[in-house]
Design a protein around this nucleic acid. Structure first.
Lengths: 123, 123
DNA sequence: GGTTACCTACTTCAAGTGTAGTATGATAAT
DNA sequence: ATTATCATACTACACTTGAAGTAGGTAACC
């Protein structure tokens, strides 16, 4: 797997949220804020298809694109790539966030998750 | 600040580790594993200089490059960019790592950091 | 049944990245 | 001085990414 560029990732995020969908619907329902031309979405979807991230199927007059890589799967891959690239360990990553000023809410959320990850394993 | 491409980041990592240094020394001492041609380093350093990440100074017969952006500073910026791009919160990022299989050691390190971040704040 | 509207496939184009070659000037070695 | 060496600045070039334009098919419209 390879890391996706920003724009393609945005399209994937839309697909992960909505499930299989047409370019037009994606643009109107999820990607409107980017202000892309209709064709632009098609370009990104074609590239994602090339890379094997989505499948294309003809559905009536439009194409229907289906994600082939799940959000969880991609995140698992990407998060590890992030560490390898610059941080080395989860600890260093979170330390960097802390320096930048992690919100109190974020900190608590994280703590809760850690408790769960550890507690789940039974001490 | 903008996120750096992989190769430029590798050069910055070398500079962060070694401090101000010449291209040749960087290549031989830190970047040899990449097998780059000598000129390649120069290109990356020139690009980093353009972007304001390093300063150049003439030192005898060679150039000496000094990092202008600190590792901590860059990491603080980058880590937040990572969240914005895909995860939304530290929690989600760590959850992704956990799915991918975080090591026991990594987990403990992280837990210790969290204790410290929280404990330091009293309570 | 020609025009309109929409859709996709293909092409384009500029900027950024990965990687290095060439030209040129200074230095060191004969 | 002449030549071999090395460092730097500039140039090159293929590939990727961000963004969209164009061409050509099908369906709907009147």
């Amino acid at each position: 797997m390879k890391r996706l560029p920003d724009t393609e990732l945005e399209v994937m995020k839309a697909l992960w949220t909505t499930g299989p969908d047409t370019p037009r619907a994606l643009l109107e329902e999820w990607l409107a804020p980017f202000g892309w031309a209709a064709n632009t979405i098609n370009t990104y979807l074609a590239r994602l298809a090339d890379k094997g991230f989505v499948a294309v199927r003809r559905e009536g007059k439009s194409n229907l694109y289906t994600p082939l890589v799940g959000r969880d799967e991609y995140q698992a891959f990407d998060s590890r790539a992030v560490l390898d690239r610059l941080y080395g360990s989860p600890r260093n990553f979170v330390a960097a966030l802390a320096r930048e000023g992690m919100g109190q809410d974020e900190l608590e959320e994280l703590q809760a998750l850690l408790d769960q990850l550890n507690g789940g394993r039974g001490k």
